[in-house]
Write a protein that binds this DNA or RNA. Structure first.
Lengths: 253, 253
DNA sequence: AAAGCCTTTTCACACAGTGAAAAGCATTGG
DNA sequence: CCAATGCTTTTCACTGTGTGAAAAGGCTTT
């Protein structure tokens, strides 16, 4: 395996993660019946799975409302300490943030989404949430850099998984539009965005290449659009590409 | 269920989490055979489990070395956003840290360990690692506050799980010693420690009660021992207890 | 008090998950 | 350069695990 997709099923294990995903998507604790419905499982099975997850600390039940538990944090901690990209991220992002005054972010692709792995805020006071660990789409903003590197098969899966491709700015986007943009990104090696995922925010992102050529991560810079015109974003590109290359080299300790 | 321990087994799911735990404990990527050995599973089964975990993003394989993946971060993010204690933690810890100048920490018990859920550094430059998500023992430092609240059965499990009860300072501790200390903590409602888990570090911790009386979390304050004598730690106790009560009340939004 | 919905338990069956063993690969050393 | 060792991956037939329907037991709601 190590990269294969022949499916030795493991149904019950798969279902356990379905439950985790359901709980992850909810922003508040869920009742059993609700979890079961969302995960497409019978209440009996769901109860059993939640029982195991609970004993393992991945789920916490407050009376009868379930949500994810502290063991998720312990696992995440291990990931951050072990993963070579994560470990390399902080200093690189810090330098980017320091020299540009903007917010620097590292995303890793996971399935048909991307996850915020690290982030360093620049001088600009545009700080929403502490978004480390947040799942974000692949078809908006920095996500496009990752989408541009996907094999056709997965790209199709993405297209059919996403109902509405239009941006937060309200611009409607067809599949053809998106594909054209991805081609452009592949050609140029970076992507400049504005008002895509967040209105009023613009940024530049570049792919972080792995030794084998695969692209599973992006580095990006972003900030409030009015204060930072596209020209400024473009001027950062060389430095961004240097940072991306540095991160790419970091995979072996 | 919701608090029960009748064991509807789910062997394969349980094993999946055994694998996660094994990977979590290792600070570097592991090979298949190694994971299998540590988890006590056959290579075939281990491979299948890793396959599922990989597809779910909970495990990443770099060539043939496995470690935890970015999906753990996404789950942790959801936990931090959803869990009422975590959400309440930051402001409370900030105030504690600000008024005392020390580091304030919140732990939650998970199984026979505790996990660092939130932490705010005080003025003192005693900052090792970014330890959020770290697993720490229940028999040292703030952990004792949690151990003191455990039902006898679980306490016994803890005692037999921990081989060596002695502190980092080198003081050897018998089971009777520990039990006596736990009784004292139950009586007083807080615990002052020095050189227990980390040499040169001392602190005070208090239990965070839940409405049902259960104690599954601790708030604590800690700093370098020479600069902060026990008397100073004791003077903080009232404020600490107030913080603990505030956190206890926070469980319902 | 009855109706409705939720959680939890029980049970018999089917097939998902299993490990032994074989087949492929890589690495090491003579 | 080939043999030997140790790892990963595949295959396969058996068995016990995981399964959902249905019943039983709790809450709320009206």
């Amino acid at each position: 395996m190590a990269a294969g997709q022949p499916q030795p099923s493991m149904r019950s294990v798969e279902r356990a993660f379905d439950v985790i995903e359901v709980l992850e998507q909810s922003d508040k604790p869920m009742r059993l019946s609700n979890v079961a419905r969302r995960a497409g499982l019978s209440p009996a099975t769901t109860l059993r799975l939640l029982g195991v997850l609970q004993r393992r600390g991945f789920v916490v039940a407050e009376q009868q409302a379930y949500h994810l538990g502290p063991a998720t944090l312990a696992a995440a901690h291990s990931f951050l300490v072990t993963d070579s990209l994560s470990r390399a991220a902080t200093p690189v992002l810090q330098e980017l943030a320091a020299t540009t005054g903007l917010t620097a972010t590292l995303h890793i692709r996971s399935g048909l989404e991307r996850i915020v792995i690290a982030r360093v805020d620049g001088a600009d006071p545009l700080r929403y949430q502490l978004p480390i660990g947040q799942r974000l789409p692949l078809h908006l903003g920095a996500g496009k850099v990752l989408a541009a590197a996907m094999p056709e098969e997965e790209l199709e899966a993405l297209m059919s998984a996403v109902r509405d491709l239009s941006t937060a700015g309200g611009k409607s986007v067809s599949e053809a539009d998106l594909r054209a943009e991805l081609a452009l990104i592949r050609e140029r090696g970076y992507h400049v965005s504005a008002d895509e995922r967040v209105v009023g925010s613009s940024g530049v992102s570049a792919p972080v290449p792995r030794p084998d050529g695969q692209v599973m991560a992006t580095v990006g810079i972003s900030g409030p659009a009015e204060r930072h015109p596209e020209s400024e974003m473009l001027s950062i590109v060389p430095e961004l590409l240097r940072a991306a290359a540095a991160l790419g080299r970091a995979r072996d300790l």
